[in-house]
Design a protein around this nucleic acid. Structure first.
Lengths: 338, 338
DNA sequence: TTGTAGGCGTTATCAG
DNA sequence: CTGATAACGCCTACAA
């Protein structure tokens, strides 16, 4: 019934012109107070709603931004998206979400689709296999803001928001050192991703600072799931001199490690200390709660959104901004006896 | 540089008209094979991309659908959204996500915004406090599909996808009965929400089927978090004849119950059996894994998307469709000794 | 202060 | 088979 009321409908009703209605509705300064009120009143009566699509076509701004992640049901990513949405919704933006399923081709297609949909910006975490750059350049050529969060790629002019993974790795390792551990192993994800590489560096940095030498036997690179953790700890235990602590760059791996250790009758934290990474919800629910590095995900999302907004407001000077948030080590039972 | 190539740019270059280009690009049957190929080739050369916003204005279809949930970072909802996205993306739709934070006013505002943005459909779970209907009617008046998932409201003409919560409650309770439990308590969420009410009914139904009488002392209605679970079990233990099993409509409550029981030296499952609801990720990671009812969330999302697509394809006959998916009881350690 | 006249990029109708 | 032309709903010079 009241479907599709346009400014012209209300103009006709009032015997004025569409332009005037438009101006009145937009509080254009040069319009009489009388007509402004009349228009506003009539608009409400007729249940007029501005058609954002028409506005988008006219203005070249869709007020939609695209968010691209590997999977949206991973708590890490969904929290970030929550942050993004909460920061952007009040500014009138809608958030379109897309998943890459960790495949570069999907990432490419998705970005193209988003571009065709005229999004005003793209906030994303790249896939593990991303190696091409042309799809990112296409975004930049169109002059639309591109912001990486967490998993970034080095591209001139592209801003990013990450946590300081070096510090996260450093803090986790330092904590184990402080706990008296002497042989600290590190189970890492694929170091092709910067985040994992940085955590490794942090781990090495902490060792170096106390003059522990890095032992390659104590470094394992593997997938980030429970099974990988179980396999990794078996390898480590088979060493002549097994480690006495594990810092894992994944909570799932840490969980696998703990499960296997218990299965083998080892005690955590008495015989083995374990620290994970990401502060996944389950780490604090376990009977033996797991020490982990919190990545302040909601805050990361909000920050990414803010960088986007900033980039929108002064598009003239495009500064490459690299924001690094400080991770927080959450000490729980798996790494300490105090 | 290659910013903004329109069909007119390629028309001009070829000395033909925009209309022809449009037809060629859309594989309109009445166009010569020669021009079709030429246009296609030139379009690619010039890196032409169709502007979806213009198309949306022209066609009245934005190819965006809105998804509204309380919080997107709850694993239950993010999984559903994953399902929706995966079903709709291949069909050319983009998914806009919005959060209500469990507040009706936000729900109302969000729906209005989505409507202004000309979404082609709205898929949602209502807030716990939703009582008004006018914002939903506004959607229906505009003739855009509205589909509820999980938390629904009874509105004529509105389809919904839920799980069979009655069956979930029934199965959980029946399982405890089969395990030999005689005094089964139920800790429920707010029964103002249909989902919880149904679970209660399922619980009662199972009791009735084996001639157990419903004992009001064994029924507690409370919030759905860990603390609520801890408090609830304390109340139940204070009864003259405490229960020997708990069916909770929340995994968090179940966790709280288990934590408190252990703290008090009670053994699970030996002294007490516990069953939760939702199959939250953490239930299978615990040292004592928790029996729960899986709600096949991804599937629910896909189903909701399919109902939407169906409604789009034949908008003439608007059938109210109520899909109920079968939940699956996942039996783990907290409820059985076998 | 208000009206007129495009134009944003497409597609659809109607001629030719 | 292809070219004009109008229209989707809105905004904004430019005129009046």
């Amino acid at each position: 019934m009241n479907d599709k009321v346009t400014i012209y409908d209300i103009a006709k009703k009032l015997g004025i012109t569409g332009a005037t209605v438009s101006r009145a509705l937009n509080n254009n300064p040069k319009i009489s107070e009388a007509t402004r009120k009349l228009v506003a009143k009539t608009a409400k009566e007729m249940n007029y709603k501005q058609n954002k699509v028409a506005l988008a076509l006219k203005s070249g701004k869709s007020n939609n931004i695209g968010v691209v992640v590997p999977y949206i049901d991973r708590s890490f990513f969904s929290s970030i998206i929550r942050g993004i949405e909460e920061e952007l919704y009040p500014k009138g933006y809608h958030v379109i979400i897309c998943q890459t399923h960790e495949e570069e081709q999907n990432e490419i297609d998705t970005i193209n689709n988003l571009l065709n949909a005229q999004v005003d910006g793209i906030l994303m975490s790249v896939t593990k296999q991303t190696s091409q750059l042309s799809h990112f350049n296409r975004v930049l050529e169109k002059n639309i803001p591109l912001i990486f969060f967490d998993r970034r790629i080095n591209i001139k002019g592209v801003s990013s928001v990450t946590i300081d993974d070096y510090q996260g790795g450093y803090d986790a390792t330092k904590h184990l050192i402080d706990e008296g551990c002497k042989r600290i192993a590190h189970i890492s994800g694929d170091t092709a991703l910067e985040i994992y590489k940085e955590r490794v560096e942090g781990y090495k940095g902490a060792l170096k600072d106390v003059n522990f030498t890095f032992n390659p036997d104590y470094f394992i690179q593997t997938k980030s799931d429970i099974e990988a953790g179980q396999n990794a700890i078996l390898k480590l235990l088979a060493l002549e001199t097994p480690p006495d602590a594990i810092f894992s760059s994944s909570d799932y791996v840490a969980l696998g490690v703990i499960q296997k250790l218990k299965e083998l009758g080892k005690r955590v934290p008495e015989d083995f200390r374990v620290v994970g990474f990401s502060n996944e919800p389950f780490t604090k629910f376990m009977e033996l709660t797991i020490t982990s590095v919190d990545q302040c995900t909601v805050e990361m999302g909000k920050m990414a959104a803010r960088v986007f907004l900033e980039q929108m407001s002064n598009s003239k000077l495009k500064i490459e901004k690299r924001v690094q948030l400080s991770p927080e080590l959450i000490i729980r039972q798996s790494s300490t006896q105090r």
